[in-house]
Design a protein around this nucleic acid. Structure first.
Lengths: 200, 200
DNA sequence: CCTACCGATCGGTAGG
DNA sequence: CCTACCGATCGGTAGG
């Protein structure tokens, strides 16, 4: 279940699943990068899908862990949201391929598992929504639809996995500051009112 | 090349590619939804990949067309960016599955084609960057890194394909207003300075 | 961890 | 547009 060889396999699979996609990656490719034969992989794993499940679940763990301390913090909402942005981008930067698999390939999990991931993602989003709703309630953010505002923030942060590169010219902390500057600026000073209830 | 039957095939393929992914979708599934046999598809299309290429290219056309008038408009940057957000979300809402294929499956195109799509996407991003740089130069947006700011805005808008639903409780126009409220608020009033050049 | 292999299925074609 | 089929390749297993 957790031998060192099993970890090697997961690392290679994570990279290939991220680069080519789950279905486009064959177990023969995974084996080849480890100088093994495809059949030998199954001494360490149960199935290709179990491998995907493990990678996705571990990525969800990383996101959860990164904001766990913020969920019930008593800090002001601006501080908490800024920290959440930094944490979220930090997880992505620390493992772009895990993030890519988490965001793109989870849907290839079969049914009890896919629903579980959706549920975890909903809970994660609820933490962001809670921070923003708190800021609106206390008046540090402009009043508005916290659910939609959380989605705007998370959408921006999620997509960054497409281009965020820790080895790139801009450090992850600087990218997080840019995100926070715009998103917090918008939440504090933007015109969010009126987007709340008048929709049908 | 463009018979009505060929369009039917593209419509079905677009939906299945979006729902299951390119590799996970078989030509037999596409055929089955059209009450055909798999082999018969090839009287109308050249290959599975050519079908993907057509869908992706058409989606890129839709995004380009939606902001074409904004690229060289003389309007103020706030107006243009707001219009770009509305247009972008409008394209996604009008065809979520095309957007999903465009964002997720283009990488399965083989090489001259994949590079072409990357290039088109870069040019599209450059229009957004141009609008934001213009706003910063004229002082209607806070000074900062226009490239990064454009990425924040586009990242938020792109990810919306994951949940934006024209049949949902919130109208697309209202969603666009929420996006514009936060993103424009952040660009106008946010703290964007200092994120520009001091990175490595 | 390998050899050898299995049934299933894939994209695509030939010939009508 | 169908029948019939092809070579290739897939995830996975048996038996060592």
């Amino acid at each position: 279940m957790s031998g060192t060889r099993q970890i090697d396999i997961a690392i290679v699979a994570e990279r290939l699943f991220a680069a080519r996609g789950y279905y486009a990656t064959t177990m023969r490719e995974v084996a080849r990068e480890l100088d093994m034969k495809a059949g030998s992989l199954y001494a360490h794993i149960d199935s290709k899908e179990a491998l995907l499940a493990e990678i996705v679940e571990r990525a969800a763990d990383a996101f959860d862990a990164a904001i766990a301390a913020l969920a019930h913090s008593k800090e002001p909402a601006e501080i908490r949201l800024r920290a959440a942005i930094r944490a979220h981008l930090g997880v992505i930067a620390a493992s772009r391929s895990a993030a890519a698999v988490y965001f793109n390939e989870w849907r290839h999990l079969s049914e009890p598992h896919a629903a579980r991931i959706t549920q975890r993602r909903d809970r994660y989003e609820a933490v962001w929504r809670g921070i923003i709703a708190d800021g609106m309630a206390r008046g540090s953010f402009a009043p508005g639809d916290a659910r939609m505002a959380a989605r705007v923030c998370l959408s921006a942060c999620n997509w960054s996995y497409q281009w965020l590169d820790p080895a790139g010219p801009m450090k992850v902390g600087a990218v997080a500051e840019a995100f926070a500057g715009i998103l917090l600026g918008g939440l504090v000073h933007g015109e969010l009112a009126g987007i709340s209830t008048e929709q049908q």
